[in-house]
Nucleic acid binder design. Structure first.
Lengths: 130, 130
DNA sequence: TATAGTGTTATAGTTATATATAACACATAA
DNA sequence: TTATGTGTTATATATAACTATAACACTATA
C-alpha cells in the first residue's frame, strides 16, 4: 500500500538530457515529465520538484526548464503558482493493461534484433498510412 | 510484377518537413529517407532524386538536404558520386512479416484511442527499462 | 567540344536553442 | 516582520540550425 497522502509530493527520477541526440533539450525535458504522468507515476495534484532542483536533475539551465514546463502548461498538463510550485493538473495516465500489451510487443520486437530508433520510424510510418 | 530494371531510379514520395515540430529539419529529412529504405521501397543501387529536387520536395534549403544526406553517408546507408548522384548502398530493409506484426499492433493501439506521440513516449520508456 | 544535369563548397545573415547570471515577486512559516 | 523557498523575468552571450545565393567541379551525352 502507498503511504503517501493524496497530494503529497512524489520525487520523480529524471535523467540528464542527451545533448548530442539532435533533439532539443527542452523537448527532452517535456518528454520525460509527460512520460511520468502518462505512466501514472505522477498524478493530478502532485507537485513537481522546484525548478532549481529540476535544473540539476536534467543538467540544463533554468530557462530551458521553464520553456519545457511552459509548453506543458499550454497543453493543459501542468499549472503553476508563483511562490508555490508546479502541479500536475491533467489525468493523461494510461491503463496498465495497455502498458502490459505494449511491454509484450516491445519484448517481441527486441527479440527480432531491431533497434529502438528503427522501430519508432516504422511505427510513425505505419501509423500515418492506416 | 515490377517493370523497373534493377538499378533504375525509383521516385520516392517525400513530404514537406514540419517546421514547428521541434525536431530539426535535417533530422526529419534523414528519417524520411531512412524509412523508405527500411521499408524496402528504396533498395541498394537505387538513385535518389537530385538534391535540388529534394530541396523542393522537403521544402528546405540545399544545405539542409546535404547535411541530412551526409549523416546517412556516415551511417553507411548512402553513398554519393559527384556529377552523378546519391545512391542507396546498405540493405537495412525489414522483412515484411515483422512489418505486418507491427501493423497489427498499431491498429490495436489506435482502437484504444491513444495518439502517436504518446505511444512513442511509452515505447521509449518501456524499451529502456526491460 | 559544348551543354545540361548532377554533386559540392563557400559566404553572409537570420532565427532558434541554450547558457550564465542576476534580479524580482509571491507564499509560507518561524 | 523577517527569512527562506518557491516561481518569474531580464540581459547578454554563445552555438546550432537554417536560409538565400552564388560559384565551382565532375559526369554524361549530344
Amino acid at each position: 500500500m502507498d503511504d503517501m497522502s493524496n497530494n503529497e509530493r512524489r520525487r520523480p527520477k529524471f535523467k540528464k538530457v542527451d545533448k548530442h541526440s539532435g533533439i532539443p533539450a527542452y523537448v527532452q525535458v517535456m518528454n520525460q515529465v509527460k512520460t511520468e504522468i502518462i505512466l501514472g507515476r505522477l498524478v493530478p495534484g502532485d507537485q513537481l520538484p522546484p525548478v532549481r532542483e529540476l535544473e540539476t536533475m536534467f543538467d540544463v539551465n533554468v530557462n530551458t526548464i521553464l520553456k519545457a514546463l511552459d509548453r506543458l502548461k499550454s497543453e493543459g498538463v501542468l499549472s503553476s503558482e508563483q511562490g508555490v510550485g508546479y502541479f500536475v493538473t491533467s489525468n493523461i495516465a494510461i491503463e496498465s493493461p495497455i502498458i502490459d500489451e505494449l511491454r509484450g510487443f516491445v519484448r517481441k520486437i527486441k527479440d527480432v534484433g531491431l533497434d529502438l530508433y528503427t522501430i519508432i520510424l516504422l511505427i510513425e510510418e505505419v501509423w500515418k498510412n492506416e
